[in-house]
Computed example of a mutant assay.
Amino acid sequence: MTDASIIPPSEPQRLAAVRRYDILDTPPDGAFDRITALAARRFGVPISIISIVDQDRIWFKSHYGVSVKQIGRDPGLCASAILSNDLHILTDASIDPRSLANPLVAGEFGLRFYAGVPLTTDDGHNLGTLCIIDKKARSIDQSQIEDLKDLAAIVIDQMEMQISARRAVSQAELMAREIDHRVMNSLQFVSGLLSMQSRALTDADTVGHLQLAANRVAAVAQVHRHFYAEGVDQASCITFLRRLCADLESILGRKIQVSGDEGVIPTTSVQPIGLLVNELVTNAAKHGQGLIEVRYEIEANRHALIVSDEGRDFPKDFDPTAASQSLGMRVVTSLTTQLGGVLTSGHRPDGGTCLKVSFQVQPQV
């Protein structure tokens, strides 16, 4: 029986630590690649590897001098190296009783020299190793051993920094969601107060203005809710618009039809698009008639948001970007600028008004 086949009782806890660091099958990382390249140069060996020992495999986070990305756990010397906190050294594996039967030694690969330092976490679990390998037998002195240990400590430091960064991002996202949830609740509260105030008045014009303000605030709250429901880097704009407009229908009491091209956009663009739809649809509900249509079109990286209704056409001299326009149109102009887009007005073939915001979306890399 080889050392690698001996599974200690603490193996479940060790594997849990491997999962905690969330490093398995992650993309190449220059920080780790520089360490393996430095180790190979420092010790004059052709191969250097940062390995993570999984349940049934040894996965290479960084591999200098070999192209293979993982091997099975059974023949792996790294699986033996993690059984102890000491350096695992084979100066001539062809005559060392611990490795005579190892296929990496006896087989075509012809491994002769191996020195591996366990990558030990703060709570005492060995995730894998930093190892150096040669196909020639060689010795290693104490100063080199200390250097290899220091490099292994740098590997662990790098892994700790990455897990700390992920935790910080997660906490920041959680805090942002909590803040936005409170903002949404506050907006809904303000909307409710405005609606209550409108019901307490008798002047029809004042009531109308207060109810419009209440609807606008309620709609903005829904934009916030749907924006943070995405929780990803990219989102389907049509899916977002359908959910948002379903809420706007109930708030405004108007039928809204959503159509257009399927496609994803960065979530950084979702919120201004949602606020644009909110303003354009609210304006259409106030000034237009009949069915309100929201259409989203995508051609290459050029996107267009079109909101139309069945009311009267705009006047021939209508300029949607003019400073003298209403508050709603000034908000629309500002959001269009935020997207780096262009706002234009037009008319539907079957009669009615139409506002279009076209903008460019850079593809995610």
Rank of each mutant, 00 (worst) to 15 (best):
H88Q: 04
I89W: 08
L90I: 06
L90A: 04
T91H: 02
D92L: 12
S94V: 02
L100F: 09
N102F: 05
P103R: 09
P103T: 01
L104G: 12
V105N: 07
E108S: 12
F109L: 00
G110V: 03
G110D: 00
R112Y: 03
F113P: 01
F113S: 05
F113V: 06
F113H: 07
Y114H: 07
Y114M: 10
Y114W: 12
A115C: 02
G116Y: 07
G116H: 08
V117W: 00
T120I: 02
D122I: 03
N126G: 07
N126L: 10
L127R: 00
G128I: 02
L130C: 09
I132D: 02
I132L: 11
K135R: 08
K136V: 02
R138W: 15
S139V: 14
Q142T: 01
Q142N: 08
S143H: 06
S143I: 13
I145D: 01
D147L: 14
D147T: 13
D147F: 15
L148E: 00
L148F: 08
K149F: 13
K149C: 03
D150A: 10
L151Y: 14
L151T: 01
A153M: 09
I156R: 13
I156T: 11
D157W: 00
D157E: 00
E160G: 04
E160P: 01
E160L: 05
M161A: 04
M161V: 11
Q162W: 02
I163G: 02
S164H: 14
S164E: 15
A165H: 07
A168F: 05
Q171T: 05
A172R: 08
L174C: 07
A176E: 11
D180E: 05
H181I: 02
V183T: 06
V183K: 11
M184L: 03
N185I: 02
S186M: 13
L187I: 14
F189R: 09
V190I: 05
S191F: 08
S191D: 06
G192R: 10
L193D: 13
L194S: 03
M196D: 11
S198N: 10
A200M: 13
